[in-house]
C-alpha cells in the first residue's frame, strides 16, 4: 500500500527530465563563466533586458505571448523559450537544414530567421506534425523506410518533406531531390530519405 503511493507520486510528478537536467548543468557552467568576467557579463545582461520586445508567435496552432531580444533567432526562441526542442541547431548559419520549420507552409531555416520576423505568420515545427501521441504520416514514412542513421538531421528532413508535399503532393524523384536539397545528412542516408519521401506522399493521402 505504502509502496503503491510512492510509485504513484513518482509517476505524476515531472521529476528530472533529460532537458531539465541539461539546463541545470548549463546554468552551473554559466555561473563559472561569470566569475571569470563579471563586469562585461553584467553589462551585457543590463543592455539586453532593457531591449526586450513584445512578440506574439503562432506555433503549431498555439499563440504564445513573449518578450524577445531583437537578435534572437526563431530557432533560439523555439528551443530555449518555448521548449520545442524537436527543431535542431546544426550549423546555425543556414547551410545544413536541421533547423527547418514551416512558415506559412513553406520550409525555412529558423536559424536565419529573426523571431521578430515570424510575427504574424503560421509556424509549424516537427512537434506540430504529430497527431496527439501518434506519429504523423511523414514521420511514419521515415520510420518505415529507415530514412535516417544518427537521426540528428531527421526533424529537419521530416519538416522539409512535409513542406515539399504540401505544395507537390505527388513529386517525382527529381522534385524530391530538389525539394530535399537544403537538408544535409552527414551519415549519407539520402537514398533512404528519398524513399521515405515517396512513401510519405502515399501515407499522406
Amino acid at each position: 500500500m505504502e509502496k503503491e503511493k510512492i510509485d504513484a507520486a513518482q509517476e505524476s510528478s515531472p521529476g528530472i527530465t533529460r532537458r531539465g537536467f541539461l539546463q541545470t548543468v548549463g546554468i552551473g557552467t554559466l555561473e563559472i563563466a561569470v566569475v571569470g568576467a563579471v563586469a562585461p557579463a553584467v553589462q551585457a545582461e543590463t543592455r539586453q533586458r532593457g531591449n526586450l520586445v513584445p512578440l506574439t508567435l503562432k506555433v503549431n496552432g498555439q499563440r504564445h505571448e513573449l518578450h524577445v531580444e531583437p537578435r534572437w533567432t526563431l530557432l533560439y526562441v523555439l528551443r530555449e523559450k518555448l521548449e520545442l526542442t524537436g527543431t535542431k541547431p546544426g550549423c546555425d548559419r543556414g547551410e545544413c537544414g536541421a533547423c527547418t520549420v514551416l512558415i506559412d507552409d513553406r520550409p525555412r531555416y529558423s536559424c536565419l530567421t529573426l523571431a521578430l520576423e515570424a510575427d504574424g505568420h503560421e509556424i509549424t515545427t516537427v512537434e506540430g506534425l504529430m497527431h496527439g501521441e501518434q506519429l504523423g504520416p511523414v514521420q511514419e514514412a521515415f520510420v518505415q523506410e529507415d530514412g535516417f542513421q544518427c537521426g540528428f538531421c531527421t526533424p529537419g528532413q521530416v519538416v522539409a518533406a512535409e513542406g515539399l508535399l504540401r505544395h507537390t503532393a505527388n513529386p517525382d524523384i527529381g522534385e524530391i531531390r530538389t525539394g530535399m536539397s537544403g537538408n544535409l545528412c552527414r551519415c549519407g542516408a539520402y537514398g533512404h530519405i528519398f524513399k521515405a519521401v515517396q512513401r510519405a506522399a502515399i501515407l499522406r493521402k
Partner: peptide, 9 residues
Amino acid sequence: AASPQLRNQ
C-alpha cells in the same frame, strides 16, 4: 540559387 529554404526567404 541556394536551397529551397533560402529561396523561400
